[in-house]
Amino acid sequence: MKLDVVFRIAAKIFIPFMLVFALYVQFHGELGPGGGFQAGVVAAAMVVFYAIIFGLESAQKIVPPRVVELMVPAGVGIFAGVGVVSLLLGENYLNYSPFGGDSQHGQEYGIILVEIGVLVTVTGTLVAIFYSFVGRGRE
């Protein structure tokens, strides 16, 4: 597989666009369809695609397994932490109103932060499962 020129060139052309698309879906989520979950899934599919074409080792050099496994709880931590911050700012849990200058912008920033949490957990979980599945046969 590693010697297959067509796949490697196609992957090199595709992967930047997949990354841009994932980021677009993530940060355009308030305006168009999508959000953290969809963006996370696309980003994970990108890592899986890279690992299929270039091999597991080179994928794990770019996205190390330790980082991926840390991402799984980190996303939940970000989401729950946003809730705690809004508690500390004197609002109800997960009410984002105090984050911005006025209540509306606060809600907007809160949504963006929370979506980042979703993205991190979804990407981390999918890539971690993929790594441990594919890594099994190689002992």
């Binding site: 989520g29 308030e30 997960l94 984002y96 809600q107 907007e108």
Partner: peptide, 24 residues
């Protein structure tokens, strides 16, 4: 309430943030 035109996003992340936290 949220300045977010995509209602799906505002419902998921803001109005029903607890549900989404549970999903995550």
């Amino acid at each position: 309430d949220t300045l977010v035109p995509n209602v799906v996003t505002s419902v998921l992340a803001s109005y029903r943030g607890f549900d989404t936290l549970g999903e995550v």
